[in-house]
Design a protein around this nucleic acid. Structure first.
Lengths: 251, 251
DNA sequence: TATAAGCAGATTGCATGCAATATTGACATG
DNA sequence: CATGTCAATATTGCATGCAATCTGCTTATA
């Protein structure tokens, strides 16, 4: 193995100890998976971009096996399109698919707040309030951070239900929503209104499940609307070309 | 390649033609994936059973690579638990996890009917009605078939929304629900009441979204209740042992 | 006898090699 | 000049081999 000898570039300890603390997964596969995931969500990899196994393997100093596995996972999450015998591409959802994703997200978020209403304990309430304050502070100065915190708010809410499956689905969906926003959204409107978050929390604390659900529905609708209804950017090469083609035939 | 020479036991044509019909995936990986999936859902593989890569590879006449990929996919779907350096096991959800799964399913089904209400076209309506009739016929004689048809009904409904993501999530969730039922459910009560299905359809046709949603909620609640509330079977080794452990410390 | 260390077997993690398939450009042909 | 065929190249699909890790048994030691 001439190549595997020195692929621990980060310098951190990659192995999982057998101590009882159950450290995170040590496998290179997981690391690559997470790295790619981040790269896609943070728009370092544009939708539609090709992702050859070799290239990924070389980039991370691993073999294609690892890259392949990471791509497979990402494809299940919907962040990567895997075409048989063709290769992998950063997902490039159509506008309609984007709408579908937002629809599902809305439904999931609704489940979250319905379960949470009236069931928050004191610790959770203080944590959420602190998150809101953080959001507010960041909102003024660091836009990028504000977006991150806003996303985290939704995820944290889901975690508080204790429902693993719900968390997984919402995580996936939120990721895909960011992807959709990078394609069809305006540059970077802070997608979440902090006031809306605050209202939702208050409704949850007051045990007003239906109200919280409606607020959340409205909130997500808002985000989706801003991005998907206004923007008329065509997205895929096909769309672009078809619009050019129609222009040609008219002229 | 001494072994790969003769692994087309089915005799069917394994290759995908390049004709425009876009045949299903031809890859062996997909086939193994689907086969394992069926085996788990149909209880041919009991929850908690070990799934060594070698064994699977041998069974299907492929290498570990394929088995590995299939297992990875299944683990993402939640039908298989993958333990690092330990191997794969048929998922063995706890009772609480089972409840969580049903909660999510209820929410997803609710989304489906809310979207469908008043939006069914004539073709879809006749198809659904025909499915109901089939269910009713099968219900009397072939229990196994009745269960299959009942499951298909829910999935077909989801497909009619045209929302791919919703379909994927519901498919996954329904699979996991059957798994949960095999662990905690009684032998084989036909889990879906046909009358309930019929009522839902009628509400959908009438455009009564809220009513359909409530019916569906009730319907799933019913299934979950029958299985999860009554049965007091302890489930995992951990649960068993923890109950024994507490007994110890008390005595 | 009970506990700990050490060894052997089984199984996964990962890398690599070869065959199969898709895409691109060259070339021939109407 | 347009179109169809074919070879060259790039990339995936899959199998296999070796090292790392886990499990259980055996053996040494108090």
């Amino acid at each position: 193995m001439p190549k595997a000898a020195d692929h621990n570039p980060s310098g951190t300890h990659p192995k999982r100890r057998k101590t009882g603390t159950a450290m995170k997964t040590p496998t290179r596969t997981e690391k690559v998976h997470e790295a790619l995931r981040q790269a896609i969500i943070e728009q370092q990899l544009s939708p539609g971009a090709r992702l050859p196994e070799d290239m990924i393997g070389d980039s991370f100093g691993t073999s294609r096996t690892i890259a392949r596995e990471a791509l497979l996972r990402l494809s299940v999450e919907g962040l990567v399109d895997l075409m048989p015998n063709r290769g992998a591409f950063v997902a490039n959802p159509t506008l309609d698919e984007g709408r579908d994703i937002f629809v599902v997200r809305r439904g999931l978020e609704r489940m979250v707040v319905l379960q949470l209403a009236g069931n928050l304990n004191a610790t959770q309430i203080t944590e959420l309030r602190r998150m809101l304050d953080d959001e507010e502070m960041a909102g003024a100065r660091d836009e990028r951070e504000a977006i991150r915190l806003a996303g985290e708010f939704h995820l944290r809410l889901a975690e508080m239900t204790g429902n693993k499956l719900l968390v997984r689905y919402l995580t996936e969906t939120v990721s895909r929503c960011s992807l959709v926003l990078t394609i069809y959204g305006r540059p970077h409107s802070v997608d979440c209104g902090i006031d809306e978050h605050r209202q939702i929390i208050e409704a949850l604390i007051a045990g007003q499940g239906d109200k919280a659900a409606d607020l959340m529905d409205h909130h997500i609708e808002q985000v989706a609307g801003r991005a998907l209804l206004e923007s008329r950017k065509p997205k895929s090469v096909q769309d672009v070309l078809s619009s050019y083609a129609s222009r040609l035939s008219q002229g």
